[in-house]
């Protein structure tokens, strides 16, 4: 089996994979980073969104081999120890999560969105969430959380 190496949440990691191993499987099964979730098989739900070399991707639609040598950020790498990232703090403050299953993907999507657009409008946030499904919240509190998280990040 081929071996791959990458940097995940600042840590150098290596592991063996098959050709068919998805990046999400490598993260979850090999590295034990189970915060990245799988909610569908057609790349619709967005629960598996991570950052790959600085941009958001659906890790269920990337082969692990394609991430060889890459820089990966998962939900486990967002907080600073026990201190939540301002975006995570905003999700908590605004009740932007219920069951929590879509949440890692939402937070990483929010961070990518704000990186591109530090002061988004309500409509821009909603459009930016077109690749992420939430079945619990009706989205309003997620949108409010992201707007507030962006504000906190602007300082």
């Amino acid at each position: 089996m081929p071996s791959i190496s990458m940097t995940v949440n600042g840590q150098a990691v290596t592991g063996e994979v098959e050709g068919r191993t998805l990046l999400v499987e490598f993260l979850r099964d090999t590295l034990g980073l189970t915060g990245t979730h799988v909610g569908c098989d057609t790349s619709q739900c967005g629960a598996c969104v991570i950052h790959l070399d600085g941009v958001s991707v659906k890790s269920c639609a990337v082969l692990a081999l394609n991430a060889d040598g890459a820089e990966v950020l998962t939900i486990e790498g967002v907080a600073d120890g026990d201190d939540l990232h301002p975006m995570q703090e905003a999700f908590r403050e605004h009740h932007g999560l219920q069951c929590g299953f879509c949440t890692p993907g939402m937070v990483l999507t929010a961070l990518a969105l704000v990186a591109d657009n530090p002061d988004p409008t309500d409509a821009e946030v909603r459009h930016g969430l077109e690749g992420n499904l939430c079945r619990c919240t009706g989205y309003q509190n997620i949108v409010h959380a992201i707007l507030d998280g962006a504000k906190r990040m602007r300082g």
């Binding site: 967005g46 659906k58 969105l113």
Partner: peptide, 9 residues
């Protein structure tokens, strides 16, 4: 096309 994540790949 697709969504932001799909557009990145």
């Amino acid at each position: 096309i697709g969504d932001p994540h799909v557009r990145n790949r």
